[in-house]
Amino acid sequence: MIKVENLSKSFGSKRAVDGVSFEVGKGEVLGFLGPNGAGKSTTMRMITGFIPPSAGAVSVCGLAVQENPIEVKRSIGYLPEAAPSYTEMSVLSFLRFAAEMRGLRGEALRSAIRRVVELCHLENVLGQTIDTLSKGFRHRTCLAQALIHDPEVLILDEPTDGLDPNQKHEVRTLIRKMGESKAIIFSTHILEEVEAACTRAIIIDRGRIVANGTPTELKARAATGKLEDFFRSITRSDTLAEGAA
């Protein structure tokens, strides 16, 4: 469903993503791990077509993102980092806007809104202005927007960031459930999430893939059998990386 080939992105002289290749099929949930600034968000933005790659290619559902941006965007649901939304709108009008933009009308639009409101537990805040909501609700409002057209491909940039432990658990369960019928990529800093929700994980460091395997495989590669120790052994903290550069 998602095919990334030799993807690179440079900002000026800085290489943010450097020759990344991987594939995600239907029924797979890919966890995207890596230190801050490793190139996770940049890679995801290139898959969604928000920024063009410097080199390499991305195809989604068999279509090249660069050649068919609109068609590709139709099949993707995207939760950007920090879950932005139009804060002066109410939750309902924001979701209606997202649904209309996805071409939904009439009864299809209403049932789509009902479905995501239930999935993301937004029943009690529908009429509220997004401005007035807590971080957890804002986050789920943006997640609801990504799910509104029931896309085949989901790109979620830190979907559990800023949520409390209960909400984190719910989102993870939701991702795992949806992963049965979709292709999902999500990035996270929380290593337990990988074990809880992913079928496969990629660790990316300074723009390159440094590990790719199932959570169990990755854990087995650490002497202690812990994912965290493996992560620390193959990535560098940004203070160290700066010193090396």
């Binding site: 077509g49 928000f50 941006p69 068609e71 965007k73 950007p80 920090a82 932005p84 139009y86 927007q145």
Partner: peptide, 13 residues
């Protein structure tokens, strides 16, 4: 707000 990222990843040019 960062909503430009939402807007331009919806199916519009």
């Amino acid at each position: 707000l960062g909503t430009i990222e939402l807007l331009l990843t919806m199916p519009v040019a």
